[in-house]
Computed example of a mutant assay.
Amino acid sequence: MSSDVPVLTRELVSIPSHEDEGSAGDFIEAWLREHADGDVTRDGTGNVLARKGDPTGPTLALVGHHDVVPPADEQAKNGEYLVEERGGRLYSRGTADMKGAVAAAMCAFRDASDLDGELVFASFVGEESGGVGARYAIENGFVPDYAIVGEGSTNYSKPGVTDVVVAHKGRRGSTITARGTASHASEPEAGENAIYRACEAVDLVREFEAPAAEVLGNRLSGSVAVTEIGGGSAMNVIPERCTVTVDERTVPGERAPLERVGELEGVEWAVDQDLPPMRCSDEGFAEGVLAAAREAQEGSPELVAKPHATDAGWLAEAGVACVICGASEPGEAHTKEESVSIEVLERCYQIYREAAERII
């Protein structure tokens, strides 16, 4: 057990990082320089990275992020996040998503030994803003052989167990814009109704079957849904413009053919956000992390899938064999009562260290 993990979690969680991750990054960098035997760097966007071991061997990265979503009013006071311990759990913004796992990874990086390859610690900025830090790191050459991303995987297969996620959905958000010609509503035939054109596009979207995928025994089912619509300027004017927002949950492989709506007259389609899904590309690596997870707990963890997009999607897209393993439980992240189990933080430390020593 590493009693440093809950203490380190409290210190890291108390540092605000919803508007500016700089102070949290400073803390992580300083702690690693003082406590860990490795090469610590800070890249141009604020990511903190540390390396140790043999760079000529396989590379395993322990990956997290130190930005958070804004705290609720009751989670902050005088410019600091409030941290409370009760019932064996730490309560505060960022405990679950995901500074607790970052602290566990920091301690595992420090303590892992007998490595035949290179162990990397990476804490990214901007995960909550679409993977800003992960994309910057990848564009600048961060492509380890393997990565364990410390997002939530606890209580997925059953209560009390920290599982290993081998796949997750992505998200593609897009906008359909229908254009027409305005006219007075008393003479609708003099114009082209953009709302009618948008409705044709919506009808087409409703016909699409969202793709599904199977990854190491886990089935992921995507979805496509119209979530917003807006158009028109007055009750007596035929509208010349109408927009429709589409939320698509993607899976590894094929996607819904949304580009087909652009073939309709007067209709355009544009992608606003595209967070990639994740599929573990190396079954042996997944089984190795699962073995480490079994060693660290009494329960029976499984290889599972997750509905939410994470930085693992960017890494997998770049060719990294990824899994997700972390302390957060479903429903904890981004809530007013966000919390994490201290026992599970300790468990994650053991999983990360054991996996590092097994795999590299």
Rank of each mutant, 00 (worst) to 15 (best):
M278E: 09
I342T: 08
S328Y: 03
D4S: 06
I342H: 04
A212S: 14
V149K: 09
Q350T: 15
S300H: 10
S3Y: 11
V5N: 01
A213I: 13
D43V: 05
E265F: 11
D272H: 09
A286Y: 04
A309K: 02
H18Y: 12
S14L: 04
M235N: 15
S153Q: 11
I342W: 02
P71F: 10
S183P: 06
P252S: 09
G152K: 00
A24H: 03
E74S: 06
L204V: 02
C242H: 02
S339R: 01
E84G: 02
P70F: 00
A270W: 03
F121P: 03
L275T: 00
A30C: 08
H168A: 06
G331R: 02
E329D: 07
E357M: 07
M235Y: 15
E357C: 06
G46A: 07
D54H: 11
R135W: 12
T310G: 03
A213N: 12
S233M: 12
I324Y: 07
D272T: 14
A318K: 08
V68P: 02
F124T: 02
G266A: 11
E240R: 13
G141I: 03
D39F: 04
H308I: 01
A291E: 13
A101Q: 10
I15Y: 12
P277I: 02
E29M: 15
H65T: 13
A201T: 08
S223L: 14
S113H: 02
L220G: 04
I195L: 13
T9H: 10
S281F: 04
R179D: 01
V344D: 07
G222M: 06
L12T: 02
T41Y: 08
H65S: 12
Q350G: 13
G299V: 07
V267E: 07
I15M: 15
Y91G: 02
P277V: 02
G38F: 06
V205Q: 01
G299H: 08
E283T: 14
F121G: 07
G231N: 10
G152A: 00
E343W: 09
V226C: 09
G53M: 12
Y91K: 04
E200G: 00
D73P: 14
G231A: 12
A234T: 12
A291K: 11
S328R: 05
E248L: 02
R179P: 01
K52S: 07
R51C: 07
D54K: 13
P16H: 09
A108M: 07
G313F: 01
T227N: 12
M106C: 09
K169S: 10
D203P: 00
E228I: 10
T335C: 05
A101N: 11
I138S: 08
S129T: 14
R179E: 05
A225C: 04
Q273H: 15
A182K: 03
E302H: 10
C322V: 13
A182V: 06
I28C: 05
G180T: 11
E337H: 11
M1K: 14
S17A: 15
I195G: 06
G126I: 00
E302D: 09
R172D: 00
E268Y: 14
F208T: 00
